[in-house]
Design a protein around this nucleic acid. Structure first.
Length: 593
RNA sequence: GGGUGCGUAACUCAGUGGAUAGAGUAGCGGACUUCUAAUCCGCCUGUCGCAGGUUCAAAUCCUGCCGCACCCGCCA
């Protein structure tokens, strides 16, 4: 089933050809949702754009298009307004038929991708032996949502956690471990991760201060690279402890990832350099092997190099990213690779992508999507800031640990809940309170992040995200809970309403809600392209608002038939749409709260 | 110095070349014998950073300027 807007586009194209000839068959019919509800539901801006080409007045052109426009099944008669806008309002009979069709569809009318792709979403990517921070939180939340949406659209998605589990910092860590905690090298669980983080800081300090320590560290790197048993064991120990700590966060967030860290690509790095050499892209400059970039210059205006092999023969992150990119295309068969990292890495990815293109690693046929968007996509996001746009920190002035931050959100949600229970004289079990607090707290954190355009910086505020009013997770969870309340109160099993229950749209609030329910498919397609989950958030917020208006104005259980059943169906469709939409944001629903 | 991004209501932010630029919050005023009022309704708030340009039409595209943030040779 084509979406409504696609059908209208086709009809406008046909009308255009009928009115002005086949040379306009490829002209974009410029059909968009109406800019204001008072103009109807959709509008075409075609007439103004053709005025010059056709040498006629826009309103006259609009007249001729409308004369040939066949939309009587979908819409009320088209209206021409202002300089030549063609406005369309959907018929309630058509909306009723569409809603009826959606009832029996487990996807609620949301279409699958016509050509599913093998997509890699690279997100989260914390560093071993370091605490995850708010930047990783953004990457994790946004990346997970993008992956969920693409999965829903039927793409074959590989979610990769490109953890920082290799590199020179391990030399430093192992050297310090040998020096300060030799027992940790052989005994499991001799260190907690918090110690590991402190250990990292101390090791870094030693590294910065002591030349002999620096040399030891370098030796450890060499041993590790050579695969010396002792060193590998130490490395695995460090990774294992970190991994367990990361898992606590991922479990709380309900995020699943396949770990494939930097170390995975280590054996492939020499081959990458060989390939670049073979393509004659590399030059040695000041001892380092470089690819000189097009369009990037240094302070003196000379081409900037991307260093792929350091003067000491070692490799750096650019090499690893190139190896990963090559592997993902050649071995994983990726057709679209999405990197969810902070905006500060934009240059780095642009450089790596350029080198990959010049090396010929991006085969013909996957150089771009049908719409021209590239196969390699950096999805950048802004910084997480504290109140007042300052760096986020705890009361004691430290960078907050992610685990604490999430626990704080849960604790605040719990406090809000207990206050409300007391006010309303309700008693609930501990299990209920735990569950509601956890869902509300975590959902609030996720939604606050996802609901903003990811490219801008984002100000983290518990008070705002947990607020019961406004564009927040609790507002939407509550809308869902209200619907479940109707089901309970009326002792109605929505699933048993049947898929052929009659829908009648009479009240304005019913029509508005119905129209919005039918937009889901278009929104998801948009997010698939633009990778902006805030569009989905906006849709769900508006859906909740429209449902609440309906709820306020249209009694459901007290209505008489056939209106009662019709409204029950609207409630059920809204609940299903909310549940599905929120699930694509990584947010579960609650029966009561 | 070069590059990238941002600049929209008191605050936090949406905004797809289209009509009178929108939400939420805060503020003010209403609506609960009702399916959970965690809701709904109304009012108030604008030099879309500034100046040009392209266009039938610009918050949106282009150029310059101002301000902020981030990046710029062997960290990731």
């Amino acid at each position: 089933m084509n979406s409504i807007i696609e059908q209208l586009r086709n009809r406008f194209s046909e009308a255009l050809v009928a009115a002005f000839g086949s040379e306009f068959a490829e002209t974009d019919p410029l059909v968009v949702p109406a800019s204001n509800p008072k103009f109807g539901d959709y509008q075409s801006n075609l007439a103004m754009s053709l005025a010059k080409t056709l040498g006629q007045k826009p309103r006259e052109i609009a007249q001729q298009i409308v004369q040939h426009l066949e939309v009587s099944k979908l819409c009320e008669p088209a209206e021409i307004a202002g300089p030549g806008f063609i406005n369309l309002t959907l018929k309630s009979s058509y909306l009723e038929a569409r809603l009826n069709a959606i009832q029996s569809d487990s996807q609620l009318g949301a279409e699958k991708a016509k050509t599913p792709q093998r997509v890699i979403v690279d997100f989260s990517s914390p560093n071993i032996a370091k605490e995850m921070h708010v930047g990783h939180l953004r990457s994790t939340i946004i990346g997970d949502s993008i992956a969920r949406i693409l999965e829903f659209r039927n793409h074959d998605v590989l979610r990769l956690n490109h953890v920082g589990d290799w590199g020179t910092q391990f030399g430093m860590l192992i050297a310090y471990l040998r020096e300060a905690y030799p027992e940790a090298l052989t005994k499991r669980d001799a260190l907690e991760l918090e110690d590991l983080v402190k250990l990292y800081q101390k090791a870094k300090q030693r590294f910065d201060e002591d030349e002999e320590f620096r040399e030891n560290s370098r030796q450890e790197v060499v041993k590790l690279q050579a695969g010396e048993e002792d060193s590998i064991r130490a490395w695995e120990l460090l990774c294992e402890q970190s991994r367990r700590e990361f898992q606590v966060i991922y479990s709380l967030l309900d995020v699943e990832l396949t770990e494939r860290g930097e170390s995975f690509y280590n054996p492939l790095l020499p081959g990458v350099i060989e390939d670049l050499d073979y393509q004659e892209l590399t030059e040695v400059d000041a001892g380092a092997k470089c690819v000189f970039l097009e369009g990037f210059t240094n302070k003196a205006g000379e081409p900037l190099p991307l260093i792929v092999q350091k003067s000491n023969g070692g490799y750096n992150y650019a090499t690893t990213d190139l190896a990963a990119l090559r592997y993902r295309i050649q071995q994983d068969g990726a057709e679209r690779i999405i990197y969810v990292t902070d905006a500060g890495q934009a240059d780095h990815f642009a450089q790596v992508f350029q080198v990959a293109r010049r090396a010929g690693w991006i085969p013909e046929g996957v150089k771009g999507q049908p719409d021209g968007s590239p196969v390699l996509v950096h999805v950048p996001f802004g910084l997480v800031q504290g109140e007042g746009g300052k760096k986020l920190k705890t009361r004691s002035g430290e960078t907050p640990r992610l685990r604490d931050l999430l626990q704080e959100a849960i604790a605040r949600a719990r406090a809000d809940l207990e206050t409300r229970l007391q006010e309303e004289g309700r008693t609930e079990s501990e299990e209920f309170k735990d569950k509601v607090a956890r869902v509300v707290g975590i959902s609030a954190v996720k939604y606050a992040d996802l609901s903003q355009n990811r490219t801008s910086n984002y100000i983290f505020s518990y008070d705002k995200m947990l607020s019961l009013q406004g564009n927040t997770a609790p507002y939407m969870l509550y809308a869902y809970v209200r619907i479940r309340g109707i089901s309970r109160k009326g002792n109605i099993n929505f699933e048993q309403l049947g898929t052929d229950a009659e829908i009648l749209l009479q009240e304005e609030a019913e029509l508005v809600l119905a129209k919005h329910l039918l937009q889901l498919s278009d929104v998801l397609k948009e997010v698939e392209q633009d990778l902006l989950p805030n569009r989905l958030c906006q849709y769900l917020f508006e859906l909740s608002q429209k449902f609440n208006q309906f709820y306020d104005r249209c009694p459901v259980l007290q209505a008489s038939e056939p209106q009662r059943t019709s409204r029950l169906v609207l409630c059920h469709l809204t609940a299903r749409t909310l549940k599905l939409g929120l699930s694509l944001l990584g947010i579960p629903v609650l029966e009561r709260m």
